[in-house]
Amino acid sequence: MTAGEHADTAVVRVRDLRKHFRVSGGTVRAVDGVSFDILRGETLGLVGESGCGKSTTGRTLLGLTPATAGSVEFRGRDLTGLSRRQLRAMRPHMQMIFQDSAASFNPRHTIGSIIAEPMAIHLDLDRSAIHDRVAELMELVGLKREWRKRFPHEFSGGQRQRINIARALSLNPEFVVGDEPVSALDVSIQAQVVNLMSDLQDELGLTYLMIAHDLSMVRHISDRVAVMYLGKVVELAATETLFEDPQHPYTQALLSAVPLPNPKQERARQRILLEGDVPSPREAPSGCVFRTRCPLAEARCATEEPPYREVSPGRFVACHLVDGAGSNVVPVEITG
């Protein structure tokens, strides 16, 4: 499904969202002014390297941690100003699936009671209704209903992630944030879980924000993709547009670094090798956050922050050299 097929109704509207953490010796600007919409029924992929602020964005967006500034509108209502009680009332509509399902389960609870827990807290259902609903959810995610009395350790990683998904879906959410939901799984098992999540999206009309660092997986599951670097979204576009024709120098380098499972392509490939590592978000560079590693950086990149702007319909880029008129005017230097 592509974003365009749907009337562009944004389920979630994020504007200039910031989340800063005070730490000894300074401030970590984990999320530093990000704006995007998530459209009804779509999957927005959120990618970037470790520490760039993906998880913090997901958590702040759901109100699991208070925002420092900015707004998050869910169905037209700003969540950042809500009280705890008001947020709690919104909770059933928005759920999160984490990477490490095993760690979040109580090992002494049966999986039936693990799946039932959110319903017991949030919904006014009697025991037998919950019992039936658990069986239904287990079947929905491909677990046998007879297994409800089993304990988490009796399941494999892929099965535990299914339990996690069943639990997240128990409240009939509209919007689900997946924070690396398959990263801890082996590739053949990842495929099972990814297929399940996309079937459920079609069946239930879910809207997803999928956080991941595996770019091939993101390409497979997303309608649109946002690329983060040091607390900022540097580029956002429809998936194929982004992968076929990346505009931001960081996106270009990131995509060119992804190893392809094809030895001939790998050998023939031209790579953009970035120097060094990502700077600490405690000492984010002035001007453009990418300038310390950018092969195209110019003088103004150190002093002026590039605006995040829509350079062509539906495509957003934050780079001085990408202005919409042409694009990335200077060819990127390529190393073998």
Partner: peptide, 9 residues
């Protein structure tokens, strides 16, 4: 990270 992995490779 993937850009650093590319450097090591």
């Amino acid at each position: 990270d993937v850009t650093v992995q590319a450097q090591i490779m």
